[in-house]
Write a protein that binds this DNA or RNA. Structure first.
Lengths: 216, 216, 216, 216
DNA sequence: GATGAATGAGCGTTCATTCAT
DNA sequence: AATGAATGAACGCTCATTCAT
């Protein structure tokens, strides 16, 4: 029917504009501290009016969150795709993750921000946690596949932390080009991966045989 | 001379007031996202006027930086003290670092912020880098002492990143008490330390035999 | 003719939709300060689009006015119906009026708003005045029927004012239930009615023998 | 001491500026619907910056309230002054009240607004109620002085309502000059006063012998 | 040196109205 | 006739910084 087509078109158009805004926001967030990006800037960059932004997002936080979640989806897809062809080694996994963060600074900036300071409304917190858990699950799979049985979850935490830490610590190292930074962070990730791969069969000591996990 | 004494007193007084401001700011930063602390709040907490703050600091960023550097001094002293009595093991080192960050969230929040986001004026960048290098040097010392010869600097980077990452990733884990978080982050630090200690003699492979270090 | 029927149907439909909007608006106005009701809310409540509302009303003020006039019609009918069966006493009249206002807060709120504040376009002012005059005429009839000859019109003004004032002064008395408020306002209305009934044969004094009425 | 003088001057200056803002706001409120007056307008009219307004008032509502309370003080003083020289008759009282409202439209507009719609924060509600009670007390005194023993409080309510109603109903009667309106409202007030004076000894009937007062 | 009132650009957000479909 | 996305001026309010005292 003609009607159906029109409705479809409408929806497509709506989606297109939403993507337009999302894209513009993402670019801006990448350029500078995402928290200092204003609605006006986004509107201008997206070529729409302020009001239109609010037509697609309830408020700025919502838009921030959408950018973040879009990124999370992307990274999930990247990891999944690789998984299908052939289970990646731990090293490969770390490489993929760090490479993605290098190419999508906004993602790790947001992750970092939310982790460092961010008060988030409860539902947003849930979504954030979901993303984190997804990433952790992927790491744990690799760790288990690698045959590192002890403390798989705990090791996953440690490795995940280490990878994030690499980005935090070096992604904006002053005076380096993006390319230099990418190379350095990838190298560090490789070291971390190998270190974990070769050294993670840690004998149970008093200190790491604690009965109850705080975080899982 | 009397004049000299008066000048000294003046300087002492000035220093005392500066410390007053610093202390008040630190307390406030610990309570909430330091970026949301206003000059007004600091002035009130310190019991001085707004103008006085600008008498001691050129602007808010300057004050932020001073708080950060004060913390860095503290941690340096802690590490040095331990070093004197008996060179700490890598594990002990990680424990000290993570414990300090747990007790001084502001420090790692600021570090995180400046790393994630921060445009800093050049001299501030220098100061930040100096702190980072100091910490890195300490780690490298321990790594060398542990007899892990390969890639000592690179491993130090990786370990440093990992420790920071642990804090970033878990310091605000929702629903946990500060005590639970401290225990968990300490345990992860222990895992990382042991992993690095036992596994860091990585054979040189093509990928990690890169000729030139980007960051040091 | 078929054409005629279709036109009729069209008109009926149009009228139905207009009533739909009117009704929805009225309900919303009753729930909260009518000035804070948005077009969006009305559209949603009426189950039509925003555009449709502008199809039936030139602007929000127009819709406000229509709601007001609808209410005025209602109250006129109520008073007329009572009039037909048996001319109501002044007391009964006041009771009917106050009871209606209690049950239709929006009406008195709008009346109050337009009186207090409202710039209204000239034609709207005319309509408002027409309503006021209608109410005043009814009061004057009762006053005349009661045999209070002096200053009938002026007394009607005074009584009308007094009734409105009762609502203004007590309709939102904090901490009272609607029922308590209704009882209190009705009691005050009764007092006013009796006061006017028993005391309105005022001797002509210098001050009230003014030659020309400002408002009639 | 010099210091004391300076502090005094500072306080005086501060007070002067506060009055400046208050005055400017009042003038604006008188000109148009006070709720449509913006911070920018007030700032401009007062010749200060936006920020300064917020230096003296926490928010717009606060400023609105201050204007209202200032007016209430004024009217209280007017009534008190008259009271001292010679207890005014009920007529004189009504005249004073209505004359004041005519000269200070903002006061009755605000009173009307708060009564009609206004959500007010609890402390503001308290202040408003205090003003209302003060006015009511004055009326009751006059009613008692006039020797109208029955239902003194209730009659005060009714009279107060009537006076407010007069203003609501006629203060913006379209097409009249302020002077005409003043004359008309004063005349109506006189009628009401006389009506109440001569007719308020109402015999207790079933309907007005209700056991429990809702509002007092 | 200490003060704190004044400043005003800039923020996120709202909402009546328009108009292309 | 019906739709509802787009618009953007305007809102109340914040806060780092200045500067006259």
């Amino acid at each position: 029917m003609a009607l159906k087509k029109m409705v479809e078109l409408k929806l497509k158009e709506r989606d297109a504009r939403r993507r337009l805004i999302l894209h513009a926001a993402r670019e801006l967030f990448a350029k500078k501290d995402f928290r200092s990006v204003t609605v006006r800037e986004i509107a201008k960059a997206a070529g729409v009016s302020i009001g239109t932004i609010y037509n697609y997002y309830e408020n700025l936080t919502d838009l921030f969150l959408d950018v973040f979640l879009k990124s999370a989806e992307e990274i999930e897809q990247i990891l999944n795709k690789e998984n299908l062809s052939a289970a990646p080694s731990l090293s490969r996994f770390c490489e993929l993750y760090i490479a993605y963060l290098n190419d999508n600074m906004t993602f790790y900036q947001m992750m970092g921000h939310f982790m460092l300071v961010g008060y988030l409304p409860p539902d947003a917190t849930d979504k954030l946690n979901h993303v984190m858990r997804m990433l952790m699950d992927r790491i744990e799979e690799r760790i288990n596949a690698q045959g590192m049985h002890n403390h798989a979850r705990l090791s996953a935490h440690a490795l995940f932390s280490a990878l994030n830490g690499i980005m935090i610590s070096y992604a904006r190292y002053p005076g380096r080009t993006p390319d230099q930074i990418k190379r350095h962070t990838l190298r560090l990730a490789e070291i971390v991966a190998q270190t974990f791969a070769s050294g993670s069969k840690i004998k149970k000591t008093k200190s790491n045989r604690l009965k109850k996990e705080v975080v899982s």
